[in-house]
Simulated assay, not measured.
Amino acid sequence: MELKQIEVFRAIARHGGFSRAARALGIGQPSLTRSIARLEASLGFALFLRGQGAARLTPEGAAFLREVDRAFIGLDRLRIAAEDIRNFGSGRLRVACLTALSSGLLPRTLRRFLREFPEATVSLQVRPSSTIYEWVATQRCDIGIAAPRTGFAAVEEEVLLALPGVLVVPRGHRLARLRRPAGPADLAGEDFLASALEDGARHATDDAFGAAGLVPRMRLETQYGATLCAMVAAGLGVAVVNPVVAEDHAVLPLVTKPFAPEVLFTSRLLRPRGSMRDRLAEAFATLLREEARETAGRLCPGRHPR
């Protein structure tokens, strides 16, 4: 059995015929037919019903195709892994960060880091938190910054920031004049824009409304706080967002208000568990912690960032 024969078999099954598969693969149909004959001889059973027009799988052929597809899923994962490695390039420090911290905290940290280590090269990727955990667990990156996820024993993590969310409303909105923290009752009748269900802060927000016996008038949900800020600025509703994201989008026509009960937005610093401590990674982590403390002190005076 050869890999080329398996690829030919899968192509015929997927395209529904020998001639269509031959065109898709760019080979002659006689060569394709010989390849299938050799594969069937190797396996000891027929893969296709002969004389039935379009290529139809035998029961044995259908069972074999299921196993082939499972194997090709593994190959596809290897291709994705290779693409990830290629995207990171040959940088000496590989960093992956969630979107929420990629516009303010991360650039400030990188500016300090590259000033201190001018010889360093950084490969940076901005990805969803679940992807960042996977990359750190498989040592595809040296430093990860992500929202909490569970089930990654190969990841060593520490809380980087844990800040209470803020309510953002359009400039001129009635809640912009509120002189106390806004709560779920204040949002009754308002169009509410929410973070995605996989976000831990989304569950805390839902719990806050539930404790008040209210159901928000959900108009939109999205994965990114930056998108929520843009939607609020466009007058589509109000939202509870990470204060770091709200600060990064202060140029928009928005007003930020405290929100109670507290909805925490947490981000974590991730490292591969058991990996050797690289000098550049350690220095970057130290600067990142310092920048996080400064950010927390600015946004929440008197509150420890962790």
Score class of each variant (00 low, 15 high):
S129E: 06
S130N: 12
I132D: 01
E134I: 07
A137K: 02
R140S: 00
C141Q: 00
D142H: 14
I145V: 05
I145W: 00
I145P: 01
A146M: 06
A146I: 04
A146K: 07
A147S: 10
A147I: 04
P148L: 15
R149C: 14
T150E: 15
T150H: 14
T150D: 14
G151T: 07
F152H: 15
A153Y: 08
V155T: 13
E157M: 14
E158W: 00
E158L: 02
E158Y: 00
E158V: 01
V159L: 11
L160F: 11
L161I: 08
L163N: 09
P164F: 08
V166Q: 13
V166L: 14
V166D: 11
L167K: 04
V169G: 00
P170S: 09
P170C: 08
P170M: 09
P170K: 09
R171K: 13
R171W: 07
R171L: 13
H173L: 12
A176T: 03
A176G: 08
R179I: 02
R180D: 06
R180H: 10
P181N: 01
A182Y: 05
A182T: 01
A182H: 05
A182S: 07
P184S: 05
P184R: 04
A185L: 10
D186H: 04
L187H: 02
E190I: 04
E190R: 06
D191A: 15
D191H: 10
D191M: 11
L193S: 11
A194S: 03
E198I: 05
D199R: 06
D199H: 07
G200C: 06
G200M: 05
H203K: 12
H203Y: 07
H203P: 00
A204M: 01
T205P: 04
T205I: 09
